[in-house]
């Protein structure tokens, strides 16, 4: 090899390495801290399960209301839109090419397994998650977490667990709600466009395309999306002291980390499908 080229390459590699090394170290640090935060939260949930219920239960219900019930209209709108755009058009197109029998498989593979949990998770992240990071980050910056500690109130128990449980429940319920609305509105749209397929045929083809594995995997996927979003949000809001002007940056970081984590989890579930 030409010694000049070899030296150039080595220098380039070193320069690239220097550029990416801090980012890599930061990523490893974040993942490690997040894992530790998750373990602490799980341990707190285990040891304090059922304790202080007069305070924790209303807070958990409030979080379910905030991240679930209050999002029903927007998720409903999304469900109807997705039904028209995706299910309605899929049905029409499949009938045009004479492949109506594959509609169910396509809808189950693309929508029920992939799009619905991801969409519900991202809606919860966008509508409630970002507000929650700001809320927790501000509380941390203003010393409210220390005030809780001084009162002997465990911040993980009081601030994190209700939110993680709330987000987990909400993403699960909103995913099911989204699936139901999308399928119904999609079929209704296709029906009004003169599609010759009965409701029994349509829902029957979806039922046939679903395997027994879809139910536990959908449950695991939606709950893990909710839990991961809740944990990342609480981690960025609470895990390290923030100055007020850092709360905005923490929010941006949270959105990025949540999207990456959900996509990685999704890939994990796809791999699970392929292996089972």
């Amino acid at each position: 090899m030409d010694p000049l080229t070899s030296t150039f390459n080595r220098a380039e590699v070193r320069k690239l390495g220097l550029r990416f090394a801090p980012a890599l170290i930061e990523t490893i640090e974040t993942v490690t801290h997040l894992a530790a935060f998750t373990l602490i939260t799980l341990a707190t949930g285990w040891t304090r399960f059922g304790q202080n219920s007069r305070v924790i239960r209303p807070r958990t219900l409030h979080e379910i209301y905030r991240s679930g019930v209050q999002l029903l209209p927007i998720v409903g709108f999304l469900g109807i839109a997705l039904g028209v755009v995706f299910v309605g058009q899929t049905l029409a197109l499949m009938q045009q090419v004479g492949a109506s029998g594959f509609s169910g498989t396509l809808i189950v593979t693309v929508f029920i397994r992939e799009l619905a949990p991801l969409t519900a998770g991202l809606v919860v992240l966008a509508r409630v998650g970002t507000a929650t990071v700001i809320e927790l980050g501000t509380a941390r910056a203003l010393g409210e977490v220390e005030a809780l500690e001084a009162l002997g109130v465990d911040p993980i128990h009081y601030l994190v667990l209700p939110r993680v449980v709330g987000f987990t429940t909400s993403v699960l319920c909103l995913s099911l709600y989204l699936i139901l609305l999308t399928l119904t509105s999609g079929y209704a749209f296709a029906f009004t466009r003169g599609l010759k397929i009965s409701p029994t045929e349509f829902f029957g083809s979806i039922a046939l395309a679903l395997s027994w594995l879809d139910f536990p995997v959908l449950l695991a996927k939606t709950t893990s999306f909710g839990a991961v979003i809740g944990l990342i949000i609480c981690y960025h809001g609470l895990a390290r002291p923030l100055a007020l002007d850092e709360v905005g940056q923490a929010t941006t970081r949270t959105v990025g980390h949540c999207v990456i984590a959900c996509l990685l989890l999704d890939a994990l579930f796809i791999a699970l499908y392929l292996f089972l």
Binding site: Q51, N52, S53, R54, V55, L151, G152, V153, Y158
Partner: peptide, 11 residues
């Protein structure tokens, strides 16, 4: 009331 509700599980 927070510390009392939390520690003594009072309403």
């Amino acid at each position: 009331a927070l510390p009392r509700c939390y520690h003594r599980n009072e309403t």
